[in-house]
Structures are given as C-alpha cells and as structure tokens.
Amino acid sequence: MICLVVQHFNINRILLLIIGLWPYQRSPLVELQLILLYGTLMAFIVFQLTTFITVECTLDLIYKVLSFAFLWLCFVIKYNMFWINADILRSSLNQLQNVYNEIKDKNEIAIIEKYGSRAKRITIGLISYFKRKKKKKKSRSHSSPYIVTEYFIDQEKYSYLITLHRHAAGFIGTMAMTATGTMLLTYLQHTCAMFNIACYRVERAIDILQKGGLKNEQKSYEEIIRAVNIHREAMKLSNFIISSIEGSFFFLIAAGMVCLSCNLLLVASLTNNIGQRLLSLTIVFVLYMYMFLSNYTAQDVTDHNEYVFATIYKVRWYIAPIRIQKMILFLLQRGTIDFNILGGIFVASLQSAASLASTSISYFTVLYSTRQN
C-alpha cells in the first residue's frame, strides 16, 4: 500500500508545517500561528506604503516602493490561497490516497515512484537554491536596507526591531512561495503519474487481448475500464484543486506583472546603486523562474493527458471486440477536449509563460519611456 504523505509529500509537509499551512491537524495553536505570520506579512506591506504619507511622492519613489510592496503582495496571495483552501487541499489529498489504495500492480507502483521522485528532486533543488540566496544575503545583512519603509518611530533607535520585522517577513514570504509552489507541483506530478498509468493499462489491455480466448477478452475489457476510471480521476483531481484556486492565481499574475515591471525599471534606471540593482535583478530572475516552473508543470499535465489520446491511437485498438472499442471511445472523446489547467481565466502553458514574460517587458518599456519624458 502506498502511503501518500509519508512516501511522497513528506518534504512538502515539513515546509507547510513551518508556516502553519499543512491542511491536517488544524489546532487552535496552528490557527494562532497563521494569524501571526499572516499579520507579519500584511504589516510589512502597510509599512512600505506608509512611506507615501511622510515622503514627497516622486515617480522614482513610487516605482521603488511598488517594486517591493507587490512582491510581498504575491507572498500574501500565495499564503492566503492555501489558508482559505485548506479543506479543498485536504480533500484532494484524501481522494488521491483513495486512488492509490486500489493500485496493486508493481509496474503501476513504479510509475508512481518515478513521478514522486521527480517532484522531490525539484523540491529539494528549489530549497537548495533559496538557501544559497539566503547565505549571500547574510553576507551583506549589515548594509543599509534597500526596501523603503515608514514605521512612524525612531528608525535608528529601533533599527534592530525594524530589521527583525524585515527579515521575518522575508523568511515567511519566501517559505510561503516555496512551500505552496512545490506542494502544487508535487500534487500535479502525481496526476501526471495517473495519466501515465492510464496509458499503461490501455497498452496492457491490448496485449492481453492479442493472446486470444474469451477469458483474456474479459480481462482486457476490465483493464480498459480501469484505464477509463483512472483517467477520469486524474482529470477530476487536477480540475478540482486548480478550479478552487484559480481566482487567487488571477490576482497573483496581476501582482507579479506589476512587481516584474517595476523591478525591471529599477534595474534599467539605477545606474549609481549597484546593490539596489542586484536585488531587483534577483527578484526579476526568481519571478521569471517561478513563472516558468508553474507554466511548465501545467504544460506537463496537459501533455500527459494528450499522450493518453496518442497511446490509444498507437495501439491496435481496431482488433478489439465492439464492446471494448466502445469503452476505448470514452477515452478518445475525453482526449479531444483541450485540458486547460486554469480554464476560463488563464490557460497555463509554456506559450503562456512566454506571453507573460513579453507582457512584463512591454509594461516596463511603457514605464521607462514615461520616466524618460
């Protein structure tokens, strides 16, 4: 029996537990943790925006404040996404576990292990990347901060508290983006495994049928039914969780576009401040990488769904009896439907990632030309 959380979601569980977003065992203490961490993120955004109250507003100041305020807004959106959808995430994991409970074939288990290991490698790679970034940041932690804030207190007297708040907000936000992003990636990788198992079952059904005999025909028929069932479950599980968070993704994309455009502007315009430029360049790189990974994962799910369609055409389905062909028709009909991860709001794909990157550069160009004028 496959234990989903222990074998495949153990790293994701630890990451989400650190920031209080693991959907199981939501005790009052965890709820308090959520409120404190969420409040820390929100307060940091507020104290960035209060700069406009005490300092004369210029275009440079507006772009500088918004470039970081919208980064933390992205953190808040991702944090809030998992907080308010905890029941949906828990239900999705339970449904996925129920599907895996019925899998006994060693080859199908090997497929699940393959995709689970792949998700773990990506998760560990992202954690290692952010650890390296954190070490580099520590080496210049005593330099003057590049993020403009206004706490309405003596900045020098309470500098340690302000620094503590800034680092705490940065840690919580980074953890929120990493933990929630890798959780969704791992979950969708397991739906890819289910699509692959559907392909395996179709091929196995045709192989059994070719052996001949009424008994083998019945086995082949049952295998096709199992292929149809797991394909349906894969589509249902993918749509179930994504349709629940697509509204949050819309706001995340909008906030990300503003953040990217403003930081690109800072990279292009701050000729005398190398530290500020490097920080903005890092943010731009991280956001583009996050955008690519998100859309690549969605494209991967879409490709696996289409691969089921291709597998059915590749095997010798036409030699099957009519009743088996009728069952195969269920898969063929689903294969002709475009599988949109964020259907209705945003069709996630590599092409969409390129479009988003192009859009952010277009917005940056407009802002830069305005600033020059």
Score class of each variant (00 low, 15 high):
residue 120 K to W: 05
residue 59 L to N: 13
residue 121 R to N: 13
residue 265 L to N: 07
residue 188 L to H: 12
residue 1 M to T: 11
residue 148 V to S: 11
residue 214 L to K: 15
residue 243 S to E: 15
residue 79 Y to W: 09
residue 188 L to A: 03
residue 359 T to Y: 08
residue 266 L to M: 04
residue 288 Y to V: 01
residue 344 G to D: 11
residue 207 D to A: 14
residue 193 A to Q: 02
residue 63 Y to Q: 02
residue 300 D to C: 01
residue 314 K to A: 09
residue 155 Q to G: 01
residue 112 I to V: 14
residue 32 L to E: 00
residue 324 I to Q: 12
residue 233 E to Y: 00
residue 355 S to Q: 07
residue 79 Y to M: 09
residue 350 L to F: 10
residue 331 L to M: 13
residue 4 L to R: 04
residue 218 Q to N: 06
residue 18 I to M: 11
residue 165 H to C: 06
residue 176 A to H: 04
residue 12 N to R: 05
residue 280 S to M: 03
residue 144 S to L: 14
residue 91 S to I: 03
residue 335 G to N: 04
residue 233 E to A: 02
residue 59 L to V: 07
residue 37 L to T: 07
residue 284 V to C: 13
residue 234 A to H: 04
residue 155 Q to Y: 08
residue 122 I to M: 13
residue 349 S to N: 10
residue 48 Q to L: 03
residue 7 Q to D: 10
residue 249 F to P: 02
residue 266 L to F: 00
residue 266 L to E: 04
residue 223 E to R: 13
residue 114 K to S: 15
residue 126 L to H: 05
residue 231 H to Y: 11
residue 145 P to G: 08
residue 332 L to T: 06
residue 81 M to D: 10
residue 320 A to C: 11
residue 239 N to G: 14
residue 16 L to V: 03
residue 151 Y to R: 04
residue 308 V to S: 08
residue 337 I to T: 08
residue 203 E to F: 03
residue 65 V to C: 07
residue 84 I to C: 09
residue 201 R to M: 00
residue 228 V to H: 10
residue 50 T to H: 02
residue 144 S to R: 12
residue 71 L to Q: 04
residue 145 P to L: 07
residue 306 E to R: 14
residue 163 T to H: 15
residue 314 K to R: 13
residue 251 F to S: 12
residue 54 T to L: 07
residue 162 I to E: 13
residue 8 H to D: 06
residue 290 Y to F: 10
residue 338 D to I: 10
residue 70 F to D: 03
residue 81 M to W: 01
residue 262 C to M: 15
residue 231 H to F: 09
residue 286 V to C: 08
residue 29 L to W: 11
residue 228 V to M: 06
residue 329 L to K: 14
residue 307 Y to F: 03
residue 215 K to P: 02
residue 11 I to V: 14
residue 211 K to E: 10
residue 119 A to N: 04
residue 341 I to T: 13
residue 50 T to W: 01
residue 33 Q to N: 05
residue 198 A to F: 06
residue 29 L to N: 01
residue 316 R to C: 02
residue 13 R to C: 10
residue 70 F to H: 00
residue 88 I to M: 07
residue 228 V to C: 14
residue 64 K to Y: 09
residue 310 A to Y: 09
residue 361 I to T: 06
residue 71 L to R: 00
residue 347 V to E: 15
residue 290 Y to S: 12
residue 305 N to E: 08
residue 319 I to S: 14
residue 313 Y to A: 04
residue 365 T to Y: 09
residue 265 L to V: 09
residue 93 L to N: 04
residue 43 A to E: 02
residue 193 A to K: 07
residue 328 I to C: 12
residue 323 R to E: 01
residue 241 I to S: 12
residue 311 T to A: 14
residue 142 H to Q: 10
residue 98 N to D: 12
residue 209 L to W: 04
residue 191 T to H: 05
residue 360 S to I: 00
residue 34 L to G: 10
residue 230 I to F: 06
residue 292 F to W: 13
residue 42 M to R: 00
residue 38 Y to K: 07
residue 136 K to Y: 09
residue 326 K to S: 15
residue 24 Y to N: 11
residue 52 F to Q: 13
residue 49 L to M: 09
residue 137 K to A: 11
residue 191 T to N: 05
residue 147 I to N: 05
residue 264 L to M: 15
residue 247 G to Y: 08
residue 36 L to S: 08
residue 143 S to Q: 15
residue 161 L to S: 11
residue 85 N to T: 12
residue 147 I to M: 10
